[in-house]
């Protein structure tokens, strides 16, 4: 009897462990793929708040929408068109590799999180109080790296440009998305921007920040800095890159002159002076 009980306990333990691993994987999946546009109980971002979504629509419909949102919109489905209208024409992108099973896991997660008083995917709620100059300065220090990120992530400046970072500007890993001067406007304000920073949606940032996510106070300061730069900053000019290239060319030219000076006697015989200076 006790053997049967222990076997049952073992089986239940394994099942619970598997369910827990699945839940963790789905939570990470949600964070990486959904959270830049959706919260659960934190209000509308680009897409709707997903709290209680399984009560608003049946799972079959939701699954088919998650797997291929564009097809649902193209089919003329009334609810899909309503969502499209509410998202101001932004069609939800299809997540690479998603299938009905993964969509089912996502819906299980949303259902479970909706039942909680406060979901972990509520996002960051930043008040509408004006930011202080200290908040803005701290944001700039985080952006340039003068203040290190607590979880070890690289400074924004490595890949992005924004006002106040010096004559040569910031990084431009992706020239189209690199300038963050107006990112506050692009992401329509504090809520979406802070949620985006909490869970970056680009593959490059996801890979870098998957084990080094930003802390809430860091996000707060960065939002303050981006709000200020959107109001007062000028988008970076290509002249910074030209200046950088010219510095490089001048540096190379100086090195060539230096080589010529150091080895100016290079065509004079080597052997004779050595022999002459040898003490016999």
């Amino acid at each position: 009897m006790s053997l049967r009980l222990s076997r049952l306990t073992l089986v239940l333990g394994v099942l619970l462990a598997c369910a827990s691993v699945q839940a963790q994987e789905t939570a990470a999946y949600f964070k990486q793929n959904c959270m830049s546009c959706h919260t659960i109980g934190g209000g509308k971002l680009t897409g709707p708040d997903l709290k209680g979504v399984t009560e608003r629509k049946d799972r079959e419909w939701l699954t088919s929408f998650i797997v291929n949102p564009k097809a649902k919109v193209d089919s003329g489905d009334a609810y899909a068109l309503q969502l499209l209208d509410e998202a101001r024409g932004v069609v939800m992108p299809t997540i690479a590799g998603i299938d009905a099973e993964q969509a089912g896991f996502l819906l299980d997660l949303i259902e479970a999180e909706s039942a909680l008083e406060e979901s972990q995917f509520k996002g960051i709620q930043i008040s509408n109080e004006p930011f202080t100059q200290k908040d803005i300065d701290t944001g700039l220090a985080i952006f340039t790296g003068r203040q290190s990120l607590k979880n070890g992530g690289p400074a924004c400046f490595s890949c992005h440009n924004a006002p106040g970072v010096g004559v040569l500007g910031g990084g431009r890993l992706d020239p189209v998305k690199a300038d963050l001067t107006k990112v506050y406007e692009r992401l329509q304000g504090r809520t979406v921007l802070s949620t985006w920073l909490m869970s970056p949606a680009t593959p490059t940032m996801q890979s870098i920040f998957k084990n080094a996510s930003l802390e809430k106070d860091e996000i707060y300061s960065l939002v303050a800095y981006f709000e200020n730069s959107a109001q007062h900053g000028e988008v970076g000019q290509a002249s910074a890159q030209l200046t950088f290239a010219l510095f490089g060319i001048v540096g190379a030219a100086l090195a060539l002159v230096l080589f010529d000076v150091i080895w100016n006697g290079r065509f004079v015989a080597v052997r004779r002076p050595l022999v002459d200076s040898e003490k016999l």
Partner: peptide, 14 residues
């Protein structure tokens, strides 16, 4: 180096 600065940082990070 010119088109995608700052390589020393994003190389180290990515």
């Amino acid at each position: 180096a010119v088109a995608h600065p700052w390589g020393s940082s994003w190389f180290a990070a990515s």
